[in-house]
């Protein structure tokens, strides 16, 4: 029982970390990124490549992969997505357009990874040392990943709530047109938020690769979980992300332990729908207008 709860909490922390980048991309930049999981897996592959090819510790690898994720996302937003933002007359239209564009992107990134690495599953062994916490045996790499996830989440939260720029980001998330009135450059803030989300997803990819097996085509499942967490928690809300992520992780590990590991996805969906039936805007979301 305690083991199931521990596993669930760690899984949930991971989900929350994965979803944090998406909540920035979707909540602030209004880009519903369906290629999100592919970028996560790409970061995992980068970490794998650094670790096996260059014997670089994944934790140090973070310092390389995260800035690259940030930069790539920035370029992507500036080059590919800004034309869509300009073209879209309303927010809904942008949502549909960005959805389709990132859907195409998802297959491009997946195709690149398939040509580079093939369809096989990859994993590497890093710090898989058992440690005992509260009488339960856990793998050290999972614990470290969880700790770093908490750290990143906290840093992001503080940056968004305590700094001037973070406040500007939140203002754009609430109302882009009103943000313009108080002299916030909405386009560059959106680009920055999207890129920050890209950096977060790269971090998540590196951390996940330390203890999960991944393949070129496993991005979809990450995108799906991240989307579920974001919508369940309330779009653009970090605290919601955390709570929804933990709920998802806990329910998943409890069902896997006590019912059947084959039904985890079904439970995820049931939880997702259950929350949305009661609160359509998500746990911490405000109803729109």
């Amino acid at each position: 029982m305690t083991n199931a709860i521990f596993t669930g909490l760690m899984l949930g922390g991971m989900y929350a970390l994965i979803a944090m980048g998406l909540t920035l991309q979707y909540g602030v930049a209004r880009i519903m990124n369906l290629s999100y999981g592919e970028f996560l897996v790409a970061a995992s592959f980068a970490s794998y490549w650094l670790f096996t090819g260059w014997a670089l510790n994944p934790l140090l690898g973070l310092a390389i992969v995260v800035p690259i994720g940030f930069g790539v996302s920035m370029i992507l937003y500036r080059v590919l997505l800004t034309p869509l933002v300009r073209r879209a007359p309303t927010r809904d239209a942008l949502e549909v357009d960005s959805l389709l564009a990132t859907f195409g992107m998802m297959f491009i990134v997946q195709g690149i990874m398939l040509t580079m690495f093939g369809g096989a599953y990859f994993s590497y062994s890093f710090l898989s040392i058992p440690v005992t916490v509260f009488g339960e045996t856990l793998a050290l790499n999972r614990l470290i990943a969880f700790g770093l996830a908490v750290l990143f989440g906290l840093a992001l939260y503080l940056a968004l709530t305590r700094t001037r720029f973070g406040t500007a980001i939140r203002a754009v998330a609430v109302d882009p047109s009103a943000a313009r009135l108080v002299a916030i450059d909405v386009t560059s803030v959106s680009a920055f938020a999207f890129a920050l989300g890209g950096g977060m997803v790269a971090a998540a990819g590196v951390l996940v690769s330390m203890f999960l097996t991944f393949s070129a085509s496993s991005g979809v499942i990450f995108t799906m979980k991240a989307l579920m967490v974001v919508v369940m928690g309330g779009v653009g809300n970090l605290l919601g992300c955390l709570v929804a992520g933990l709920a998802l992780g806990l329910s998943e590990s409890l069902v896997a332990t006590f019912v059947d590991p084959g039904l985890t996805l079904a439970v995820n969906f049931a939880l997702f729908l259950g929350v949305l039936l009661v609160k359509p805007a998500g746990l911490f979301g405000r109803a729109q207008r």
């Binding site: 564009a101 195409g104 992107m105 195709g111």
Partner: peptide, 19 residues
């Protein structure tokens, strides 16, 4: 082996050029 990649590019072209 590269059909996924090419299809993705075709898709993007359609979304951008022929909305």
């Amino acid at each position: 082996s590269t059909s996924t990649l090419i299809i993705g590019i075709v898709f993007l072209l359609i979304v951008y050029a022929l909305p």
